[in-house]
């Protein structure tokens, strides 16, 4: 392809840059594929890495606290606190969360809300919706969430914006499933996003050791969830400030 008439340096030739383009693209794609293989094992629900919890995490209390070692906020899996008072097996929990996610997709929630920070900006982020202090306290939360989702326009607190959530005509089963999905979502380790978030007041995130064996038994393949996953977490969930969280992500690799 090179022109005989015009001398070009080898490093400026069409041929050289074609090879460069192919090599660079191939190499980067290969690195991405290798990283993808690794990431996919890490983000398996309930995997050893503990970033994405098993679905049965909805049987437990979930906290969000400052991790002093990592210098960012992390979710903590506390003692048993089954959703709607009903303890589920991993398979049942998965089916419930699955129904919830299907419902959230089917009702196109993401084009008003953000989910893990992605989506639209017309309504609040849902990442920590389960832990939002707006629900008042742990005891009232499930009831309030259910009431709200059943009839959002009537129960809307628009905080002066006038923006109400339209009635999605959710069935009772869909409401429960959506709440389960949100509870599971709040336990995903999102590298400290959102920063400085203060969860609603909840009971302790640690418990007496005797109930642990039973809990990890029921969870099957998942890691022992009954004890706090993070070594350095403190209870109760701190309301203290999270100074410069996220600003100190040094040496992340």
């Amino acid at each position: 392809m090179s022109e005989p008439g015009i001398p070009t340096e080898w490093w400026a030739s069409e041929n050289f840059w074609r090879k460069c383009a192919i090599f660079v693209t191939g190499f980067m794609a290969l690195v991405l594929v290798l990283l993808t293989f690794h990431t996919l094992t890490v983000i398996e629900a309930g995997s050893e890495a503990g970033r994405v919890p098993a679905y049965s995490v909805i049987n437990h209390r979930i906290g969000y606290v400052m991790d002093d070692e990592k210098r960012r906020m992390m979710p903590v899996i506390g003692p048993k606190a089954p959703l709607f008072g009903e303890e589920l097996t991993e398979a049942e929990a998965m089916a419930l969360v699955d129904h919830g996610k299907l419902t959230v997709q089917a009702r196109n929630c993401m084009n008003c809300h953000t989910i893990l920070g992605n989506g639209a900006y017309y309504a609040p982020d849902l990442t920590k919706a389960w832990l939002d202090p707006g629900w008042g306290n742990e005891q009232a939360r499930e009831l309030l969430m259910t009431m709200f989702l059943k009839d959002p326009p009537t129960n809307a607190r628009t905080f002066g914006t006038g923006r109400r959530m339209p009635n999605q005509e959710l069935t009772d089963a869909e409401v429960r499933a959506v709440i389960a999905y949100l509870k599971w979502m709040s336990a995903i380790d999102t590298n400290g996003f959102p920063s400085g978030f203060k969860p609603l007041p909840q009971g302790p995130l640690t418990e007496a050791p005797q109930s642990q064996s039973g809990a990890s038994h029921a969870l099957g393949t998942s890691p022992p969830l009954a004890q706090p996953r993070r070594p350095s977490t403190k209870s109760p969930p701190p309301l203290a400030s999270a100074p410069a969280a996220g600003l100190s992500m040094r040496g992340a690799t």
């Binding site: 990431t39 920070g117 999102t190």
Partner: peptide
């Protein structure tokens, strides 16, 4: 191609994506 990593900061993916 690896700039893709800037979407993997906060979605539950491993910390090395922050760096990459």
């Amino acid at each position: 191609i690896l700039g893709l990593g800037h979407h993997y900061f906060w979605i539950g993916t491993p910390e090395y994506w922050l760096g990459i």
